[in-house]
Design a protein around this nucleic acid. Structure first.
Lengths: 150, 150
DNA sequence: CTAATATCAGGACAACTGATATAT
DNA sequence: CATATATCAGTTTTCCTGATATTA
């Protein structure tokens, strides 16, 4: 309808950027407010999920994967180690590295907890989005991943 | 293909929750790292966008809209007022409230800056996503908005 | 010697909670 | 008096930068 479809597209992309920023901020705040003491932080949950998916990894690898500094990843992982969910073993072929992996305790915990656990985001996705919408969201997550990766 | 399609859907929803958390975290970190000094924070950009879209509003209204406490919104808005982008006027019919609105300076700044401005997210969306993908992302943003709203 | 990894220390930022003043 | 708004002050969380030790 517009006489200048290009300008139209541009302004829609601009609005999209704003909406995306806003919704990301809201999501983050909501995640924090829903967190009960003893819960994992979003970063920690991400790390466990990644270790489960990709297998053992070093803190530096995890930091790169999450787009975060190695030092920051250190403080994300430390509580997980303290809780016995993640174990560290020195890399036999490279003494600088420590290989992190899920403990059996953690695997067990993930297995039994998954659906029952108090994961607000998971519950809300199941409650509020149809399977088709979940698929749509999954595709969009991949799109955003492309935006934030190098 | 699975014998238990329900369990399958559940585990996909669980992975989706994890991926969404991860990508939201990455996006936030990326936004921060791309911010040049003098840039608006994501919250501030959101506020300007909302004031432009919905017209003048109080800090409390903005806080509710962004899913944030009024006190927090205060510190988001304060720099915008100091920068002359937002002006406050007392509500004539309710002395408790201060009506915030965009200044002419800000409108001018938005108008001229929009495409040229150093908005990393906007530029990246335009550069990396096709118009169709942008539409898909916009739909997904609406889905996430449904998750984070009450 | 240079590069990569890990860790310690201190700092910045954005949100929070609690308390207080004021107006409805 | 109860409710809603705004603001001040202090705290927490999460990530950052900078520095140092160790190993490749």
């Amino acid at each position: 309808m517009s006489e200048t479809p290009d300008a139209d597209r541009t302004s829609r992309a601009f609005a999209l950027a704003g909406d995306l920023r806003a919704v990301a901020g809201k999501l983050k705040r909501r995640l924090r407010e829903q967190a009960s003491p003893g819960d994992l932080t979003p970063s920690q949950a991400s790390v466990l999920l990644r270790l489960e998916k990709d297998g053992p990894a070093t803190a530096s690898y995890l930091a790169r994967a999450e787009g975060m500094r190695p030092q920051s990843m250190g403080s994300v992982v430390a509580p997980l180690e303290a809780a016995g969910l993640v174990g560290g073993a020195p890399d036999p072929s490279d003494g600088r590295q420590t290989i992190l992996s899920l403990t059996d305790t953690c695997r067990e915990w993930l297995r039994e907890g998954r659906a029952a656990r108090q994961d607000w985001l998971f519950r809300t996705i199941e409650a509020r989005l149809s399977p088709e919408e979940q698929d749509e969201l999954a595709r969009a997550v991949a799109l955003v991943a492309r935006l934030v990766d190098d």
